[in-house]
């Protein structure tokens, strides 16, 4: 009879990377569905294109590095879906594909694949196209256009490597009331216009495809938290610190700084706090570190939005938070039980 000897752990939760990743994909389904309902064919095509390009990039990277096929761990799929949700709905599809390749290659493969990446790959992809195509990534299309299920937004079908097709004629033909082509944050920054709260909840405000409804994002995030697939402290720390900062600025000078709800409900704060900042490979693991990391992201988001040249700051805030994560872990190591100070 042979006795099998194994190192600990002897019990585990039965969860592995593919399971967790699969549930994140489930949680993103309603967000994608809402986005498609709002923007129609263009949003659908964008999500499909970006995801497929991420999968293709992952496959090529596997091939070149001679490692095993990692498509089945779902991580490239999540990167693709999340990336598509942070892009404007009318973003040309070819640029979406560029973003997908940049996300996987620059954000993940170069560092050695899943788990070795210091930055959230989806945000690396977005940062790349933000720097490469600054105009296209700030061109917004109206939601709920009447023709959205029968035709594409013209800029979606731009020929590869060409300047996006002009969408103004299409916007005029599909006129949606009150469309200005600027996000709530931009309208505050440049016009001091306060968006109505209900528009930001129902998705009528201009935004990236997946960030229009803060409420829906919150519900999907709560599902992951309830199933314990996500560390609840990170979103709480991000949103909480952003709330306190926004509230403080509003108290200090309500003329100059936007009202608090604008900071919380607009832009990518909810999407970033729930689905990007919580990326396991790029966030700290120590209990205290998680709070510091979340607070750093929240504070930076507000600072970039209020004082930076950009209207939206979530992406860079999370990337900076990712970069700081190893350092945070290093300084906030919990004391080992029973260990004594030397």
């Amino acid at each position: 009879m042979s006795i099998e000897l194994r190192p600990s752990p002897h019990l585990h939760s039965g969860r592995d990377v593919p399971t967790i990743m699969r549930h994140v994909v489930y949680a993103l389904f309603p967000v994608c569905a809402f986005s498609i309902w709002q923007y129609g064919l263009s949003a659908l095509a964008l999500i499909v294109t970006v995801t497929l390009s991420c999968l293709a990039a992952e496959r090529i990277a596997n091939r070149m590095s001679g490692t095993v096929n990692t498509l089945s761990d779902w991580s490239a799929t999540i990167t693709g879906v999340l990336l598509a949700l942070t892009l404007p709905p009318a973003f040309p599809l070819w640029m979406g594909a560029v973003a997908g390749f940049a996300a996987i290659w620059l954000g993940k493969s170069l560092f050695g694949g899943l788990g070795h990446n210091p930055f959230n790959p989806a945000l690396v992809g977005r940062a790349f196209v933000q720097a490469a195509f600054p105009t296209a990534i700030t061109t917004w299309a109206p939601a709920f256009a009447p023709q959205r299920f029968s035709e594409f937004i013209p800029s979606s079908l731009t020929l590869p490597f060409m300047v996006p097709n002009d969408i103004s004629a299409w916007v005029a033909a599909n006129m949606v009331d009150g469309f200005t082509g600027a996000t709530p944050l931009a309208r505050w920054k440049f016009e001091h216009f306060v968006y109505p709260v209900e528009d930001m909840i129902t998705g009528a405000a201009s935004a990236s495809s997946g960030e229009t409804s803060a409420l829906l994002l919150l519900v999907c995030g709560l599902y992951l938290i309830a199933r314990k697939f996500m560390d609840w402290r990170i979103p709480v720390a991000v949103v909480g610190s952003a709330m306190i900062m926004a509230w403080g600025f509003q108290l200090y000078d309500a003329e100059t700084y936007p009202p608090m709800h604008l900071a919380l409900l607009s832009g990518g704060l909810m999407l970033g706090a729930l689905f990007m900042a919580t990326d396991m490979a790029t966030s700290p693991v120590t209990p205290m570190g998680v709070w510091v990391y979340g607070a750093l992201i929240g504070v930076l988001t507000i600072l970039i939005r209020y004082f930076g040249g950009l209207t939206e700051g979530v992406m860079y805030a999370i990337l900076v938070g990712n970069a700081a994560a190893p350092l945070i872990d290093k300084y906030l190591q919990p004391k080992v039980f029973g260990a004594r100070k030397k």
């Binding site: 720097a131 490469a132 195509f133 600054p134 731009t158 490597f161 060409m162 300047v163």
Partner: peptide, 20 residues
């Protein structure tokens, strides 16, 4: 090279483009 409608990749003429 590619006619008038070519979309320039702005990042390439910025410092990060050099590193990439």
């Amino acid at each position: 090279l590619f006619g008038e409608h070519f979309q320039p990749w702005v990042v390439m003429v910025l410092p990060p483009g050099g590193f990439f």
